[in-house]
């Protein structure tokens, strides 16, 4: 059953955060949504899960390197950069 604790757990996995009021609303929404999703739970597990059609090894990309992009292009959309790098707050 869906509850606030599960919402918190999913928020952590999702790297999202909610105020208490938002958390309640989200828990409520998720409860209603999961009730629809529960439809799949009883499905025949002897059926094969879907997978993409395989490609043959011979059709894979040949191993030849090409040009990379200019560093300034790669960094163009970053809000904060230093020199040729992206700036990340310290990882705890």
């Amino acid at each position: 059953m869906f509850n606030t604790e599960l919402t918190r757990h999913l928020a952590e996995l999702s790297k999202l955060e909610f105020t208490d009021a938002e958390l309640d609303k989200m828990t409520n929404d998720m409860t209603n949504i999961i009730a629809v999703m529960d439809k799949v739970c009883g499905f025949d597990t002897s059926k094969k899960p879907y997978a993409l059609d395989a490609v043959d090894y011979k059709d894979l990309r040949r191993d030849e390197h090409g040009e990379s992009y200019p560093t300034e292009k790669i960094l163009e959309n970053a809000d904060i950069k230093r020199g040729a790098t992206f700036v990340v707050p310290k990882v705890v």
Binding site: K15, F86, P89
Partner: peptide
């Protein structure tokens, strides 16, 4: 996550807080 492109919050002391 706000680092390479896209919206970057002014909040967040560490990586985890910033992404969130």
């Amino acid at each position: 996550d706000g680092i390479k492109y896209g919206y970057r919050s002014g909040l967040g002391e560490d990586f985890n807080d910033l992404i969130k």
